[in-house]
Design a protein around this nucleic acid. Sequence first.
RNA 1: GCCGAAGUGGUGGAAUUGGUAGACGCAGCGGACUCAAAAUCCGCCGGUGGCAACACCAUGAGGGUUCAAGUCCCUCCUUCGGCACCA
Length: 824
Amino acid sequence: MAGHDREYNFNEVEEKWQKRWEESNAFLSKKDSAREKYYILEMFPYPSGRLHMGHVRNYTIGDIVSRFLKMKGFNVFHPMGWDSFGLPAENAAIKNNIPPFKWTSDNISYMKKQLKRMGFSYDWTREVATYEPGYYRWNQWMFLKMYEKGLAYKKKAPVNWCETCQTVLANEQAEGGICWRCESEVAQKELEQWFFKITDYAEDLLKGHDELVGNWPEQVLTMQKNWIGRSTGLRINFRLESGEDFPIYTTRPDTVFGVTFMVIAPEHPLLEGVKDKRVRDFIARIKNQSMFDRMSDEKEKEGIDTGLKIINPFNGDIVPLYVGNFVLMGYGTGAIMAVPAHDTRDFAFAKKFGIPVKLVIDNPKSPIDVNTMPDAYVDEGICVNSAQFNGMTNTAAIEKIADFAEAQGFGKREVNFRIRDWLISRQRYWGCPIPMIYCDSCGIVPVPEKDLPVVLPTEVDFKGDSKSPLINMDEYINTVCPKCKGKAKREIDTMDTFVDSSWYYAKFTSPDSKEIYDWGEVHYWMPVDQYIGGIEHAVLHLLYARFFSMVMNDMGILPTREPFTRLLTQGMVIKDGAKMSKSKGNVVDPDAIIEKYGADTVRLFMLFTAPPQKQLEWSDKGVEGCFRFINRIWRFINRNSGLYVAGGAPEGEQLSPALESIRRELHLTVKAVTYDIQERMQYNTAIARMMELVNALYLVDEKEFSTPEGKAVLSEVFSKLLPMLSPFIPHTAAELWDLLGNWSQLHDLQWPDYIESLAKRDEIEIVFQVNGKIRAKEQVSADISKEEMEKLALAHEKVRELTANKNVKKVIVVPGKLVNIVIQ
RNA sequence: GCCGAAGUGGUGGAAUUGGUAGACGCAGCGGACUCAAAAUCCGCCGGUGGCAACACCAUGAGGGUUCAAGUCCCUCCUUCGGCACCA
């Protein structure tokens, strides 16, 4: 073989190409109405200090998509930015006495270097960082717009308080009573806070799923659906003995004749009039329980009889009213009807307090004895003890009873949602100021639009605790009322950082626009065609972002209702079977691996080891395997670079069998790799196919390639293989392309095509089965007919042996695959 | 408890519509090169039996459908994820 082995110096190669791409603005995106756009986005990082493997995987997947589609001719948009407000900066500030602004911007510049070191094809001219006043002024602007529309409001409510984080949290961020950030238990506190009225969009958020089906992971849609928790039921006005209305909500009106008691939430205003000390004490005790304890499955339901009586409007039954710790003030009316015969929880409660059980739905297959039933009967059945509804199936009765209640005027059909409004106030410093002013004479007054942004002071003094330093900043707090010009105070709470990330994807389209967005840009680029990130945001970021997108769409500033057309949730990077974490000591630092093997090897490993949706188990040996593959390509092309002719390819000349076979392999590979990337997003198999091609090249006798036909074949191989490798290992591919003397920029090339007639094997192996068992194999021409296949099979020595003296019942021929002979 | 996904060699993972199970990589074994080693290149590599040709067994377990099942259906087991008093 000609030529010397040049060592694969990945540091030199990667540095060289990164510099070139930067200098030539290789990945800048410009609006171009003539071309089809493709917006690829990965969830932007919180600048915590350095990239971790999860980021590297996430962004590598995005970069493949981006580079591939660019070569496919799309006008690709691939921006990156920083989710740069948040608690870690503040905690670091308290601990190390570094101002959050400095800590954050230092982290950003380091992580930006790391991203560039990976060779990711971002358009950095679009970069946004949420901590910049130029960005968060639009948070504030949106807040004001939403305030005008009644979508932002302040109310006193029991809220989740995290003692460790020293702030309140939204419901989504305190699932199961656990803080999403620090995993400590949250407490309930009664506080006056700012909310976004996401409940107004509950129906839209649910309906929007219809257009996401098939393009979003099923799991994410299910999680959101559960979280939104739509139910249809009936509001029924029961009455107090005093005659006062006592409305409840139920999804089971068919059981209303079986009500034997009612339960009310401890927070219910009706209870304020109750004097009984035992009841008062009970309420006080329950209000002290954390929501987690109250709703915990392990604990038994608690309750106490209030002494009040409730009248059932359907049958005039008078039943006792209990207070129960399991009834939520925030859902329905804060009170429920209880039917022990047909609800397991009510059944247990009734048994505990000796409340009667009344059967109203019977099992048609085996009648139920109410005195001996071991548990509630919750299945379908026939109505009994239900006046004019007796004999109906309970499913029919649901509608009939609702009709009746509506006609009588004591009931109304109602839709309820589990989702609550989004609590966005945070009692912390490092976030976007809420643009509101409190005036003693005018009350709550919004900051006028012209005064935006309300800039968060960056020169702050931490007292070593978690209290917001803004509390002590009189020069910040004290202001004048925009209405009466009198003395007033600013809101010092900041916004949940999930607000920042709820619209950043659209801001990328026009980071420097005078309005929130430049209409032309946002109209051209939105929606995001492919979004990639972790599944942990299924009901957090991904729900909030959809909400914001819909609100902005209704305001007419965003062209699309759904922000993300397709979603890919990538699997975690794990080591030794567990998520990488400092406490487990199994963290692998990307920097160290890049230093040892280079970015291309890391990229290849991230894609080769597992398909994107699955977990990826870290393996040092696996990384070496990828490094070895890159070296194999490097060596082969370096040794044979002299044989390459730009634009060379066979043109009808007779090829030796070896060359003919390589050429077929090449076209087969192009076809398969294209399919794997484009249709399946399965990069591991795409890489495997290219490995097979390289393995095949190594097995060809070197003399074959020195002939004119050999040169032509090899030239064709290089001219297709390197572009295919380019999205995966862009630096190495570019360097080799350069080495071959090509003047073009590899990433600007068209994705290679293949010739259909060559992307087929000319000879195939077919299988002969007898009764479904493989008994023989034979090499045949690929265009063999069914009849010929059957003839060959029956003529085969082995087959004849097995079928001799046997009755051939049936012969099944699968073209190009097999012949199955069924005997006897 | 309910809902969903998954279970394939020593290992990470392939197998597009039911049609040759185990592509590709890692690990392992053998060979070439070398004074030797590393690197590199070549070969072998699911299990059992057999010198071999070959036979039998094998995709969590057990049934079923089919000429043919990793793939479809039923039951069960295990693992992972989500929801668990929302009336």
